[in-house]
């Protein structure tokens, strides 16, 4: 009757998605802080920071694509119905 698997899915998806996004963004913040301290050769740290922010954004975008049926069919070629 009660679909416990659905609860497990919500929990696991929430934890993994949130932690991935926060990890990526945190590394971005850290690299930016490093870049500001270094003085010279800040280019690498800065590029790394923006790469991290991009990764965080991509994870979010992927999540939205998975949720919207039209988008997941168009981009991933599969139905998102569970």
């Amino acid at each position: 009757m009660i679909d416990w698997v659905a609860f497990a899915i919500v929990a696991i998806v929430t934890w993994i998605a949130a932690m991935l996004i926060v990890t990526a963004y945190s590394f971005g913040v850290r690299l930016l802080a490093v870049a500001r301290d270094e003085g010279k050769s800040t280019g690498l740290s800065k590029t790394g920071a923006y790469a991290c922010f991009t990764v965080a954004g991509l994870i979010v975008a992927f999540g939205v694509v998975l949720i919207v049926p039209q988008l997941s069919e168009a981009i991933l070629g599969m139905s998102s119905s569970h």
Binding site: I9, T14, A17, V64, L66, I67, S80
Partner: peptide, 11 residues
């Protein structure tokens, strides 16, 4: 994340 995952499953 929690709300979007739940919405997707109709909660």
């Amino acid at each position: 994340s929690a709300i979007l995952a739940s919405s997707h499953l109709g909660f």
